[in-house]
Structure formats: structure tokens, C-alpha cells
Design a protein around this nucleic acid. Structure first.
Lengths: 345, 345
DNA sequence: TTGTATGCGTTATCAA
DNA sequence: TTGATAACGCATACAA
């Protein structure tokens, strides 16, 4: 059915070698030959078979992006930018979801049983060091870690400085005059690095203002979804005295938190100020609009993809760490700028 | 580096044929051979090369999902379910974005220059019939259309009944006692089928209640994002008399609409009732929570993937149309149930 | 500059 | 039941 290199060669009365040269843009091909080949290609509607090419060259042109769930706004936005960045470098992107399943993460890290199907992997996991420990950078396919400052310096990673980001968010609440500041997002059992680092930044900011972190005001959240934020907040508001501000470890947690405050008959930011992390678009239109820490996801995506491309070219590259910029964006939920002033539209 | 079938064969002192049989679970292999082979596989850490397998069998185990933008909640939710459905059938999913670019759509329909890289394609496009007209179902790779009732019956498609869905949403507003009902989502220039059908359903519902559609109350939206909904609503509210209800062709439009009503100093639903379509999670936590038409995306994803799988097996299958169920979900934005009653949490 | 021939790692055909 | 071997479609070493 589909034409092959050989079909084209026969039709153009040249060897497959010449056709291959033309197709792959090889320099030394006479103009006459090139034209002949090009016409045959046109006539046959020839399209190179990437699979055969891959078998020969070992490169698939495919990257794998692994996220917990693609429908979490932060990850879908990241995915969008990763796909675009990859496309600009000639790669296509496969997406896998771990669904918070450690075993699945471990499996995907091993190549998911399809080791040779992609040239490299972008891994945006919950992963503790545990899953990574078994992985040998020298033997596995090129890997870039996203969003986690793992304490494993054998791998490249691209992430924000979680400690500073959390510190900045908390400081913003303190600067708004709040003193009973709660946090949502510590993990109940797991020892993921992101929550740990955010908690560290949170405490550090309190400490700088001479405040002690109140244990009862530090709520855990199994996941980082709206439902988790809602539940955690509902429970925080039963404390007495109740918190006058909440730092949520994700914007989605914050969206749930805002609704919970409202459902409890209180107001944001008057009674409780709220800030998140991620800067998802939803927070620019919510009522009140959400103060947050904006992460430079385009930077993350571009850096990660180009580093991965580089590593695919040269697997011997030393592991490196890339820190993405972040900015605190005050909006209505902390009594800050109105939506119109927030750059939201 | 990586062990091949031949390496295993050498080590186990058998032919590659036997190893292949064991690996692919062929019936007629003596237990002794199987054990010998299995041990060699274990010792060498052998993993089959999917690319070579593909070259031979012609099947890659990859599906391509094409959406306008993966970070639109509706599409990311769909993607999530497609990926899961595909995984359960042994497929992995590549994602491509068209970014509202017709040329890009056309190109992807032609296989994106990588025709043989995936076994089939799920296409969730803006596509008019135009892009599809050039495509020959018999020659191109298996294709399922998502979300569009194209007037082209040469292809399978999975979609809701847009006319009825829009009719039901509008009827809900009418049942709430609203009489000046606006709509947002008609397309400025393009003739996509989805907006056309939703407009048809909208008018039909008005007509059934003896109302004439007011041209000035039918706002266009270039895309279906929050910003579009915000702008369109801001302009609708300048009409006089202003609308007392708005039917938005997507939930995202509705989120922008709610914020715009609020920014205009009015209230939802008291002054303006709002309903959307999609039932994204965001609308369950917003203030007010968003009345909407819930689409059965799990049904859409499962149906599309299994139909695609069937078509990959038998490309000769006749084109078929699958209609996904939808339900109107009244929430606060039309004065309906409170968040807690809405099944939102 | 172009042609010939080999191999990438599998599966499948044909014998044995 | 198992072995030898020919494809699958392409890129490239080697020759011409």
C-alpha cells in the first residue's frame, strides 16, 4: 500500500541510496537526480516510515512526559508547553499518568516495558528518592526530573526553589498583617520533597517574624486537588481561634479553600486571606481572584526539553540543576490588587 | 548494550524462533525449553524492542490524540480518560495540539508526516468538513472524530447531541423564569458544526416558549476560553434592557461570564443566571457554583478508544456514529441546588 | 556522486 | 515442537 524507498528508487530509475540521500537532505546530490527523485516521491505520495528509520538509527523522535494526572491544571499547562517546546525541536510527546501510584512510577522509570520507544523521558512525579534509587542513569534512557528537588544528584532536574517560594508566599501573608497563619499541603505519610521543602519555607518565614508554627494549623492533604483543599479548610476553620490566613501548597487546594471559607459563612480575604502556588488561569477569574506564586512554566518546559535533547545527543553530560524563576502575585484573596490590575486578562 | 533476541537464543542454546515464541506467549513450547529461555532472559535482563517488533508487525501500540489545546480543562479531562482507556487496551497515547490552526489540523490529518508511527488517531478538532474532505478513509490511518457531528458520514464519530444539549440548557434558563436570554459562543467567521448546532438548539428552545432570539444578545466568541466569556459578557451587559440569563457554549466561557457580571456590579444568579456546557470540576467550586450540561466523557473516551481499536483490527468497518449521554445539572448560578447538594464534592 | 549490500531486532514462512 | 532464514523499510559502510 504505502510506497517505500525502493518503490521511489525504481520509479526514478536510481538507487535507494540516492533516494535516501534526497529524503534526508544529504548535500552531495546532483540537481538532476534530486529533481527526478522529488518527482517520483510526489507521484507516489511517498512518506518515510519513521519506524524503519528508528530501527536503523536508534532514535524515535518521541519523548515521554510522565505526570500524576494530566487533568490537573498545572500539569496540563506544563504539558502544553512541553509539547510545543518538543515540537520546535522535532520531537513528539507521549503522555503517561502515574495516578499517584508508586508502583506505576517505578515501572515507568524502568521504561514501562517499552524502553526503546522513546528517546528520553520528562518525569514530573511525586517520586521520593526511593523510586529513583534503583535507576542507573548510565543504563536507563535519558531522564529529566521536573518540579522536584530530589536529593539525588545523579539526574538533571528543573524546578523552582520550593523553600524560597513557600517562604515568599508566607511572607506575603505576614506583610498583610496576618498572624495566625495556617498551611495546607503537608503529606500525611509520604516524604516527598516538594511538600517538605514548602513546609520548611513556611516555617522559616514565620520564624523570621518571631512566630511559632502552630501544629493544629498545619493541615495535611493527600492530593493537591480542590476537594482536599475544601476538606482541610473546613477542618481548620473549626480551630479556635481560627486562622486568619492560609497558605495552600497548590492553587487547586486554594480554590477548594476559598469555597470552604465561603460555605462556613466567612469572607476572603476579610476573615481569612488565602494564597496558593502555581498561578493557574482559574485563579485569575475566581471570586475573589487568587493570590499566588507564579512559576515560570515556559522556562521549565523549554529548559527541560532542550536539556533532554542535549542529553539524548550526549548521554555523558553531567547531571545539572536548573532553577526556574517564581514571583508572588498579590490578588484579591489577600486583599491585593483587583482582577483588572492583576494582569489576569 | 541492550540484549537482543539473538543474545538470549545463544545463551539458552536455542534458536531465535523459540525465544520469540516464549516471549510472545506462543502455545506450543515445551516446558523445558520455556524454562531455559526464561532463565536466559532473566539473566540478560532482556526487554523486547518494540520498534523492531513494530517494523515487522506494522503495529506500534500508539494512538494519537489531537486536541486544540491540552490545557483546556475539557480536553485535559478527556485526555486523562482516553489515556486510561487506551492503557487498558494496551495502547499508549501521543498528544498533538492544533492550536486552532487549520493548516496544522490538515497536516495532522495526513499523519503529520509520521504516518506509520501510530496505529490510529482520535481527532477532537474545530475541523469543518473542509479539512476532512481531502482525507480518504480507505487510505489514511484509522480515524475517530470526537465531539463533532460532522456532516461527513465516511468517518466514525463520538459526540453528544449538541442540538438537544443546547436546547436543554436554554430550557433550564426558561424554566427558571428568565425571558431575556443571551448566548455566547457562536463563531465569528467559521462554520464549525458544534457552535452551529448549539445555536440551533438555543433558538429552538426559545421558539418553544414563544420567544424570538434577539440578535444583539447572541455574542460570538473566537475561542471558548475564560477571557472570551469575560469580554462577551461585559459587552452583553451594556445592552439595554440587559439580559437576565446567559447560555454559554462552554463552562470556561461561563467562568469568565460570572466574573464579568460580578465586575459590572451585578449578581449571579439574582440579576443574571448563567449556565455552561462541559461540567468541568472548576464549576463545582466556583462562587456561585456553575449550572451546566454534564457530558459523559468516560463514555466518550471508552467508546472512542474501543471503536478505534476495533477499526485498527478491521479497517473495513462501516462508519458509525455514537451519541454520548448528557444531563443538565442545576447549581447556584441558575438559582439551583447549593454546592453541597450538587454532587460536587 | 551514486550503486550494492548489510544489518537494525523482530515475526513469520517453510522445513525438518 | 523447533531450527534456519527471509522479510519489514531504512541508513550507511564500502565500492565503483
Amino acid at each position: 500500500m504505502a510506497a517505500t524507498l525502493r518503490d521511489v528508487a525504481d520509479r526514478a530509475q536510481v538507487s535507494v541510496r540516492t533516494v535516501s540521500n534526497v529524503v534526508s537532505g544529504y548535500e552531495h546530490v546532483s540537481e538532476k537526480m534530486r529533481q527526478r527523485v522529488l518527482r517520483a516521491i510526489e507521484e507516489l505520495g511517498y512518506i518515510p516510515n519513521p519506524v524503519a528509520r528508528t530501527l536503523r538509527t536508534g532514535k524515535t523522535g518521541l519523548l515521554s512526559l510522565v505526570v500524576p494526572e494530566i487533568d490537573v491544571p498545572y500539569f496540563s499547562q506544563l504539558a502544553r508547553e512541553v509539547i510545543d517546546a518538543a515540537a520546535s525541536l522535532g520531537f513528539q510527546v507521549m503522555i503517561d499518568q502515574t495516578g499517584h501510584d508508586h508502583e506505576r512510577e517505578r515501572q515507568l522509570l524502568r521504561g514501562g516495558g517499552r524502553r526503546n520507544l522513546f528517546d528520553g523521558m520528562l518525569f514530573a512525579p511525586l517520586a521520593t528518592g526511593d523510586e529513583l534509587r534503583d535507576v542507573d542513569p548510565a543504563r536507563s534512557s535519558p531522564l529529566i526530573l521536573l518540579g522536584e528537588h530530589v536529593f539525588d544528584h545523579r539526574f538533571d532536574h528543573v524546578a523552582i526553589d520550593n523553600v524560597v517560594a513557600a517562604h515568599d508566599a508566607t511572607t506575603h501573608l505576614l506583610d498583610c498583617g496576618r498572624t495566625r497563619i495556617a498551611a495546607i499541603g503537608a503529606q500525611p505519610k509520604e516524604m516527598y520533597s516538594t511538600p517538605l521543602q514548602r513546609t520548611e519555607g513556611f516555617r522559616k518565614a514565620l520564624d523570621e517574624h518571631g512566630l511559632e508554627p502552630v501544629t493544629a494549623l498545619q493541615a495535611t492533604a493527600a492530593h493537591y486537588g480542590r476537594a482536599d483543599g475544601y476538606e482541610a479548610t473546613a477542618s481548620l476553620l473549626r480551630e479556635s481561634p481560627r486562622p486568619d490566613a492560609i497558605f495552600c501548597y497548590s492553587d487547586l487546594l486554594a480554590m477548594g479553600a476559598i469555597r470552604a471559607v465561603f460555605d462556613a459563612g466567612l469572607r476572603v480575604p476579610d476573615d481569612v486571606a488565602i494564597i496558593g502556588i502555581d498561578d493557574i488561569e482559574e485563579g485569575r477569574y475566581s471570586r475573589p481572584s487568587l493570590s499566588t506564586v507564579s512559576l515560570d512554566t515556559p522556562f521549565i518546559a523549554r529548559t527541560a526539553v532542550s536539556r533532554l535533547a542535549a542529553r539524548i545527543e550526549d548521554p555523558g553530560l553531567p547531571a545539572e540543576e536548573f532553577v526556574a524563576p517564581h514571583t508572588v502575585i498579590p490578588r484579591e484573596s489577600t486583599g491585593g490588587a483587583s482582577r483588572a490590575d492583576s494582569g489576569g486578562v
